[in-house]
């Protein structure tokens, strides 16, 4: 039955063998020439990808280290900046205090000078007023008495009037 079937389908041992040999030749050629270079290229590409991934890890680690360093440096810089600000603030306070003190003393000085000037002017005015007043009193007395007063009278009257004026002022 098998023989009949093979005969119907044209199966012949010699043709079967020829096809087997034919396929084996193709297999050997492909195994020799096609597969090794493809494996080589794929392997190289795979290694390249793995290397890239390794590099990526290294870069990530380096990035992390740099980020930490940046954070640390920022923290140190921040502390230093705060220190500088504190120092500047203290210095500024000191300067302000000094300026304040100086201003105060200047004001006091100016005030003293002004008071002195005022009292001087007061004195001058007082003298002037006394002189004018004495002259007015002498003129008044001369007119009342119709007599010209001498130098001693002048002195006496002026002293008396100035004494009264001092008491009134």
């Amino acid at each position: 039955m098998l023989e009949r079937m093979f005969s119907d389908f044209g199966v012949q041992p010699i043709l079967l063998l020829a096809q087997i040999v034919n396929f084996l030749i193709l297999f050997l050629v492909l195994r020799k020439f096609l597969y090794p270079p493809i494996f080589k290229v794929l392997e190289a590409r795979k290694n390249g990808v793995l290397k890239s991934l390794e590099n990526e890890d290294k870069i990530e680690q380096r990035l992390l280290a740099i980020e930490n360093e940046v954070t640390q440096r920022l923290s140190v810089a921040s502390k230093e900046a705060n220190k500088i600000i504190d120092t500047a603030s203290n210095t500024a306070d000191e300067i302000i205090a000094k300026a304040h003190q100086k201003g105060q003393s200047d004001i006091e000085l100016m005030l003293e000078q002004a008071q002195y000037t005022i009292s001087q002017q007061q004195e001058d005015m007082k003298k002037e007023m006394s002189t004018k007043y004495a002259q007015l009193v002498i003129v008044g007395v001369e007119k009342i008495t119709n007599k010209v007063l001498g130098a001693d009278d002048h002195k006496r009257i002026i002293r008396q009037q100035l004494k009264d004026l001092d008491n009134n002022l």
Binding site: G10, L15, A18, Q19, N22, F23, I25, L26, V29, L30, F33, L34, P36, P37, I38, K40, V41, A44, R45, G48
Partner: peptide, 27 residues
């Protein structure tokens, strides 16, 4: 047979392509 001729032809041109491809492989 005609199928043997055809299979020999396929073996031949697949082999030629394999040799050609092996020299042309690039990254």
């Amino acid at each position: 047979t005609n199928s043997l001729i055809t299979s020999l032809l396929f073996t031949f041109y697949l082999s030629i392509i394999a040799i050609f491809v092996s020299n042309k492989m690039s990254m």
